[in-house]
Design a protein around this nucleic acid. Structure first.
Length: 121
DNA sequence: TCCATGACGAGAT
DNA sequence: GATCTCGCCATGG
């Protein structure tokens, strides 16, 4: 796990990007999380956009990053257009048992996986 | 250097 | 409950 800081402002002491990748890789199969949840876990609850920014550069990262398990706070597959094909994200989720309807994760609240709760705190 | 943009989110209207 | 507005911070023109 990446080193974190409670202090807002010193959060970038370590690659925010790497932190995001680390958290996303820990999302279990069949579960999803949100950009905001990750941002919050990393100590930057207001910087969810940075999470999205990081995800944009996650396609090349060596250890596979299950980016399809990250959706926005509404359980909407807002990042599907950044995958190889627009249907790739939905396919991957379905394979893991996460049903998707119209870019919307069904039972989102049940499938939701909050790192801040599931990991430590 | 200033401005617009973005896989977002929360609060206000 | 649908929309709008603003905050966040890195990037690119």
């Amino acid at each position: 796990m990446a080193k974190r800081t409670e202090q807002k402002g010193t959060i970038m002491e370590r690659d925010f990007f790497t932190d995001v990748m680390d958290v996303v890789r820990q999302v279990p199969r069949g579960r999803v999380t949100s950009y905001g949840a990750i941002a919050k876990y990393l100590g930057a609850p207001r910087s969810s956009r940075l999470v999205g920014w990081s995800m944009n550069r996650a396609h090349d990262v060596k250890p596979n990053v299950p980016a399809h398990r990250v959706v926005n706070r509404n359980g909407l597959l807002t990042g599907k257009h950044h995958f190889a094909t627009a249907s790739r994200m939905e396919e991957l989720l379905n394979e893991e048992g996460v049903k998707v309807k119209k870019d919307q994760v069904l039972d989102y609240t049940k499938k939701f996986w909050d790192p801040a709760v599931e990991l430590d705190m």
